[in-house]
Nucleic acid binder design. Sequence first.
DNA 1: GCAATAATGCAATTCCATTGCATACATTTT
DNA 2: AAAATGTATGCAATGGAATTGCATTATTGC
Lengths: 138, 138
Amino acid sequence: METIEQVLESKNIRVTAMRLLIYKFLAENQVAVTLSDIENAFEKADRTTLYRTVKTFVEKDIVHQIDDGTGIVKYALCEQDCSCEIETDLHLHFHCNNCNETICLTEHKIPKIKVPNGFVSENINLVVKGMCDKCSGQ
Amino acid sequence: METIEQVLESKNIRVTAMRLLIYKFLAENQVAVTLSDIENAFEKADRTTLYRTVKTFVEKDIVHQIDDGTGIVKYALCEQDCSCEIETDLHLHFHCNNCNETICLTEHKIPKIKVPNGFVSENINLVVKGMCDKCSGQ
DNA sequence: GCAATAATGCAATTCCATTGCATACATTTT
DNA sequence: AAAATGTATGCAATGGAATTGCATTATTGC
C-alpha cells in the first residue's frame, strides 16, 4: 500500500500539508466533488489555493475532471491503475438528477464508439443521468 | 414540407419576427452554436431576448442543448422526427479540439449503456472529442 | 379598439473560473 | 546554518457566461 506522500512524489508533486489534506478529502469521497465542496470542507483555506491544488492534481493525472452537464466542474481521484488520458480506459459517470451527486462507475467502461470517416476520436465523455441507487430505493 | 410558422405553432410557440430569424439561423447551421454565435449574427438584438428565445425552444423541444465540455452551452435544432427527451433516441455529439466546432452525429445513436442495479437511467450525454473530418483532412 | 397576456430590451446581478501580485514556505546550494 | 532559488499560498481583482427584475412594446382574444 502506497502512502499519499509516495503517490504525490511519484508524480513529481511537492508534498505539502494542504495537498495531503485535499488528497485525503478526495479519497474519502466516493462521489465527484466540486470546488465549492472542497471549499466548504476547508473553510480556513483560500479558494485559489484549493483551485490550484486540484488543477495540479489534474495536470499530474492523479485526479480526473468531470463535466456532468450541471455546468460545474467536478473532480474525483483516479483509480490506482487508472489511465484516464487513454481513451480505452475511460469509465462512465452517473449524475443523479435527484440528489445532484455524480458518481464514477469505474467498472463500467465506455463501449467502443464508431465515428464517421474522417473523424478521429481522441477522448470520450459519457454521462448517464437519472436516479441513483440511494434515491431510487426510497 | 412544414413551414417554420407551422413548426412553432404546433409546439405552442408564439410566432414572432425574432423567433423566425433565430430558427432560420439555427437551421442554416449544421454545427451546434453558442449564445454568443447567435448574438454575433443578430447584433441589433439583445442578448437576453436571444437567450430567452433559445430557452423557449429548448423547453418546447424544438432545440436541444449540448454540453460538449467546453463549459459553454451549445444549441442545435432537433431533427424533424427527433424526440430528444427519450433516451433511446439520443444521438451523440462530436467536438473538434482543433476548430472547436461541435457537430450532431444524428445518425449515430448512443449504444445501450448498462448501469448498476438500483440506478435508473433517464438520459445520456455522450460527447466524442478529437479531430473532425475537415481538420483531419488537412 | 381594448384589455389581457406574452415578448423584448435594458440594466443589473450572480456564480464560477481564472489571473496578478505580494508573501510565506521549502529545497538546494554554498 | 544561512543565503538563494523556486514553488506554494493567500488576498484581491477580473472575466465570462448564465440568469433575473422590471419597464416597455408587441401580439392575441374578446
